[in-house]
Design a binder for these strands. Sequence first.
DNA 1: ACAGTATATGTCAGTTTTGACATATACACA
DNA 2: TGTGTATATGTCAAAACTGACATATACTGT
Lengths: 110, 110
Amino acid sequence: MTSTKRKKLKAKGWKFGDVQDFLELSDEEMAFIEMKLALGRSLKERRQRKGLSQAALARLISSSQSRVAKMETGDASVSIDLLIKSLLALGASRKELAKSIEQSKRPAAA
Amino acid sequence: MTSTKRKKLKAKGWKFGDVQDFLELSDEEMAFIEMKLALGRSLKERRQRKGLSQAALARLISSSQSRVAKMETGDASVSIDLLIKSLLALGASRKELAKSIEQSKRPAAA
DNA sequence: ACAGTATATGTCAGTTTTGACATATACACA
DNA sequence: TGTGTATATGTCAAAACTGACATATACTGT
């Protein structure tokens, strides 16, 4: 929950609210960022499972390859709205979206 | 899922993507809007359970009473990002958020 | 080495979202 | 009737997001 986990996230451009230092994120902010990352992972999985390139998905949702890449890598410039719309476009149900949002990361099969 | 349900939603300012006519929303678009409405309901519930006014919540999240009202009434101008940040600020967990997103409306206790 | 494909990252003008403000409605209780 | 509190709705400048483009990296095959 705290510093250990925080340091694992690479600052990509995240400057959240008033918080300057990336390592000083509150738990709320962490939760929000992790949700975005989780949705990005889901998007990538779904896209790949369908054998689509980022460019092909971009066409499908009237966006661009670069924005799809940013969604999947968790760039600070992408909204959750866009992630959700994209996942819905790939056929995800609300229930499946909920599952992505809920899970903290994945069982870590190491 | 289809026309019956669609007509129940009052057009508040929704003009989604290319779709002109509100009654012609695709299932994806419906799912997106219903998610927003569900999150708005959750926000209202949580706020009221804490005995906060919209103005008090607004202070808490550095926003304004009017924007909180728009969040709770499902105004087309509010993002899911803002709804989620607000719910997190009220102490909702990712699991609880997931639950809100998942449920279509509520068992309808009539 | 070169060409083709896939993904990542930086930039930017156009669009959308935001907080703030004004104002309206509704309900209480003096 | 007024005064106070709570919520809803319209507007707008400023901030955030978006698609598009350029470009970089990496991994094919040839």
